Amino acid sequence: MILTTTLKALTAGTMLLLTASHGSIFDSRIFEPEKMPASLNWGDVPEPSEISVTTSDGLILKGYRWKPRCKSHVALVFFHGNSGNRFDAANLAAPLRRDDVDLIVASYRGYGDNPGQPDEEGLYADAEAFVKQAKADRPDKVFLFGYSLGGAVALNATTRVRVNGIATLGTFTDLRSAAPRLARAFIPYEFDNLKIAKSINTPWLLMHGTKDEVVPVKHAQRLADAAGNKAVFVRLQGAPHRILLDQIAQRIWTQLGSMSLSDSEDNVSPSTEIQPADSQWNYLARDPQCDRILS
């Protein structure tokens, strides 16, 4: 997410000059790509295969994939936040692996060793390419998962490609609202999730940590209110912005399976309330190293 300390330190006059001359100072705080590490250590996680997709504007982007072992399977496309690379994203997404899931980890232009420069429309095009790749193998259903900024990317994808369900974690109403007040007028991108929430027809599992220090949980409440009965809002009790998914992965799959569209449905019936088994999930941060020792 945006580094609020840097933006708060800039005066309005300084930001105006920077914006007039070049927008890259803001891009560098919104998008924080990292190069791929020199060596990849997957630890206890089976190494995924590398995949490539071609975007509508001709970029060839790399991501990762854990292929399903079952002939009958669903696909899930995972979209990471504003920082890192596909290796970081894969480590975050890894707990969502299942034998009956084609887990595709998307990444964006300019991230890792991918070509191009990130911007809002570019990330939307990148997402569309990865979702189309997931659908190409004709899975029984297709789901999207978006973390932080990736939630905005995933939500926009639902307006471009039909999918059976979406999950988001730690996303915001819109990018400007998530930034310090002083910086909002100068941010060149919208990432307007609230607008999409008002008309979304895809079943939506909306998760947010109650101790999120980057995006306050009130953002999720506004999104849930806007989506109405199209969304399930789950508060992760005690969870910060970045969490380990291993504790909640099974519950995520259970919830997605219970609320997803069938292939014959075009949208969620307005008369149907989608309810989670439990609207509050406990989250206790754990040390992965300790987990391995104790398991």
Rank of each mutant, 00 (worst) to 15 (best):
S49P: 02
K141L: 13
A106Y: 00
H80L: 01
A75R: 06
V232I: 15
F145D: 07
A93I: 02
D192I: 09
F79H: 07
D266H: 06
R160W: 03
E47P: 00
K211N: 06
A93S: 09
R242H: 11
K141S: 10
I51H: 04
L236Y: 05
H208V: 01
D263H: 07
A277D: 01
A167M: 13
A94K: 00
S39Y: 04
L7N: 05
G150Y: 03
A167G: 07
L40H: 01
K62L: 09
I200W: 12
N193Y: 12
A285E: 09
K35M: 12
N41Q: 12
L236D: 12
K67Q: 14
P139G: 09
L223C: 08
A136H: 03
A249N: 04
L40Q: 10
R176K: 15
Q289H: 09
K211G: 00
S72C: 08
T6H: 12
V234A: 07
A106Q: 01
F31G: 04
D287I: 11
F78E: 07
L17N: 13
E213D: 10
D278K: 15
N114H: 07
W42V: 07
N267L: 06
A167E: 02
E47T: 14
V153S: 03
D192N: 15
S199G: 00
F233S: 11
K67E: 15
K198F: 05
I60K: 06
G84K: 02
S258F: 01
K135P: 11
D27V: 06
I252F: 11
E265Y: 12
F233H: 13
A94R: 00
R29I: 14
L92M: 10
L182Y: 01
T6K: 14
G257I: 06
V45N: 07
Q117W: 13
